[in-house]
């Protein structure tokens, strides 16, 4: 097997794909909560993606990504057997998975994938894990089986009620916080707006809430400062100081504003006039 070779490729929901990639050096040190930077081709973007799973013996990492723009669409167009141009990691701090009694793991949309190894890690270390996963609609729900296997209890929500409970993830979360005694950690990963609502939900209960911030990144090594976030009034670099932070202290408005930095330009890249495709399928010119 070649380094960075995609050895398995699978579509698991609309515009959501799973790759298993051979990268033995990366798996050696990786732990739940860390991420990678991936490049599709020489002049491509450096895309940060969470390590959704890994297998040290086989030397493989699993990434799950949603095709939202030019680079993730290019990534999704790669086939099994092809090699990524680059992959570096594991980056960022690992999650604190030991010492918890009761954990609620909340995953929204694509965020269910990165929450999985953290929830599993907490479970393996003796915590009771309740997971709440949500998506806009049933077709977009991912990782249900995997989450069920490692959770003491799993609650599924969809916005449109097409599967599970018709609710935002914060509804069952509030009920849990009201009824369960032993919850000492909430981990939430998903869109910024969801993480913000989760943090607001847990705040009155004083339950520690960890969120994973997906700011725009380039190097992922602390060199550029493009990933800056504000937490408790202080500026941090999400790639080296995070990606996890105390959800009660994060300035989510700033995060959302900064995520939109290149929205106009990304739209241009995705909406080339010759391509009716709205999701950024934009074949590269031959070199």
């Amino acid at each position: 097997m070649k380094t960075y070779e995609i050895i398995h490729r699978e579509q698991i929901a609309e515009r959501v794909k799973v790759f298993i990639v051979y990268a033995p050096l990366i798996t050696k040190h990786c732990r739940p909560g860390q991420f990678l930077i991936v490049m599709v081709h020489e002049n491509g973007e450096r895309i940060p993606l969470t390590i959704a799973d890994f297998d040290q013996e086989r030397g493989v990492v699993e990434i799950v990504f949603q095709e939202v723009g030019k680079s993730t669409v290019q990534l999704g167009a790669m086939e099994a057997g092809e090699c990524l141009h680059a992959m570096v990691g594991p980056l960022g701090h690992a999650s604190e998975i030991t010492g918890w009694k009761g954990v609620v793991a909340v995953g929204g949309g694509i965020g269910v994938a990165p929450v999985f190894p953290i929830a599993r890690g907490c479970k393996q270390n003796g915590a009771r894990v309740t997971s709440i996963i949500g998506a806009r609609t049933s077709e977009l729900l991912i990782y249900e089986k995997k989450m069920r296997a490692i959770s003491d209890e799993l609650i599924v929500c969809t916005d449109d009620g097409s599967y599970g409970r018709q609710a935002m993830v914060t509804e069952p979360l509030r009920e849990l916080l009201e009824t369960e005694e032993e919850i000492d950690l909430c981990v939430a990963i998903g869109p910024a707006i969801m993480m913000k609502s989760v943090a607001e939900t847990t705040r009155p209960f004083g339950v520690k809430t960890v969120v994973s911030l997906n700011s725009i990144m380039i190097d992922g090594t602390g060199m550029c400062g493009g990933c800056r976030v504000s937490v408790g009034g202080e500026t941090y670099f999400a790639c080296v100081d995070g990606p996890e932070f105390d959800g009660h202290e994060v300035d989510f408005e700033l995060l959302m504003a900064r995520q939109g930095m290149y929205r106009d330009q990304e739209k241009d890249a995705a909406d080339e006039p010759s391509h009716p495709c709205r999701i950024g399928l934009h074949p590269r010119k031959p070199a």
Partner: peptide, 8 residues
């Protein structure tokens, strides 16, 4: 693509 201190 090897960050010493993290990858090795």
């Amino acid at each position: 693509n090897i960050l010493v201190g993290a990858s090795v």
